[in-house]
């Protein structure tokens, strides 16, 4: 871990301004950033501690939705009465991730910004375009079992590791930010996350100093909320694939985790589902959502696994609807 100067911000605006300079990082929960700093993957010369900012509230929005402060911990968000009642897929996704200790510290904003879990990204000796642009992607012909199958590029096949973000995507959540100049923005997750293309080191569209202040959930959409995570051990592991679904009769909303550089949702695929015959719906959705998928030999199993997992989720939704 390189030496850094440490600044504790008192207001979001001050934090954004303090972080505008090159080499500056925000720290809140620290559960991903410090891991990466110890490995010399992140080398900030300055940390702006935003953990004490007043961004810890969960509040109702006028239209019946919910605004979540960026510093609400994963545990508190998962356990919020309105989240459990109206956005259960979010609770389910959060508690499927990491461990209780990490969820007690990790924040909503930080979870969105967690970086790839590709083993080549995690070792500074190894080629990785995300960590060290231009060095190549060793995962393409190396260990890629856990990595992405769609939305990738020849430069990078890392997947986004978050569970929470997959649920946020299926809920059409937006991200609120504040720039150093005081202007605020609202971004959809597809606007927030970049695909790797030939610049995999750029993961979001955030500008220097731009601070995530919160996440807004639109008014509840009802339906049966499910999150299913498939992994190599029963807990405390990242997803091989995950499915976040809201099922409401013939309509579904589905986002996928563990398979793309960002939470993967294809609205057309949900239409394809609605239009298909009952016994072909899951296949229709997967076919459309993963059209153009480019798995490696090692992770080609993920596409059939997604199909199977979605079917399991739909079967479970059917059972829950009956019950």
């Amino acid at each position: 871990m390189r030496a850094f100067s440490y600044t504790r911000a008192d207001t979001p605006q001050a934090a954004a301004q303090a972080a505008e300079a090159t080499g500056t990082k925000f720290i809140a929960g620290g559960t991903n950033l410090l891991d990466l700093m110890k490995l010399d993957i992140e080398q900030p010369s300055r940390l702006v501690d935003v953990s004490r900012l007043n961004l810890r509230d969960v509040t109702d929005t006028p239209d019946g939705g919910l605004h979540v402060g960026a510093l609400v911990t994963n545990t508190d968000l998962a356990n919020h009465p309105r989240v459990k009642a109206d956005y259960a897929v979010l609770t389910r996704a959060i508690v499927a991730g990491a461990s209780g200790q990490i969820r007690n510290k990790a924040t909503t904003g930080g979870n969105l910004l967690q970086r790839a879990r590709c083993p080549y990204f995690y070792d500074t000796n190894l080629p990785c375009n995300k960590r060290d642009p231009g060095t190549g992607c060793a995962a393409l012909r190396g260990l890629s079992r856990t990595l992405a199958v769609i939305g990738t590029s020849d430069a990078c096949i890392a997947q986004h590791p978050s569970d929470m973000a997959v649920a946020l995507r299926v809920l059409d959540a937006t991200v609120s930010t504040l720039k150093p100049d005081g202007t605020a923005r609202t971004l959809t997750l597809d606007e927030f996350y970049r695909l790797p293309e030939d610049t995999p080191h750029l993961e979001t569209t955030l500008e220097p100093g731009e601070l995530i202040t919160g996440v807004t959930l639109p008014p509840p959409v009802g339906g049966t909320h499910l999150y299913r995570k498939v992994r190599d051990r029963a807990s405390y592991a990242f997803a091989l694939v995950s499915v976040a679904a809201i099922v409401d009769g013939d309509r579904v909303r589905v986002a996928f985790g563990g398979v793309a550089p960002r939470p993967w949702r294809v609205p057309d695929a949900e239409d394809a589902y609605a239009q298909a015959k009952a016994d072909g719906r899951a296949d229709a959705l997967i076919d459309r959502a993963f059209e153009g998928a480019r798995p490696t030999e090692e992770n080609a199993f993920k596409v059939p696994l997604l199909r199977r997992t979605l079917k399991a989720v739909l079967a479970q939704a059917g059972q829950e609807a009956q019950a």
Partner: peptide, 28 residues
């Protein structure tokens, strides 16, 4: 679950941490 994955070009065990070298946890 336990396997050190060899990168056959680079010659190392790539999953060299407890996050990616899986040992059983309580839930297993």
């Amino acid at each position: 679950m336990e396997a050190l994955h060899v990168d056959h070009d680079l010659g190392l065990f790539v999953n060299h941490d407890l996050g990616e070298y899986h040992v059983p946890v309580h839930a297993d």
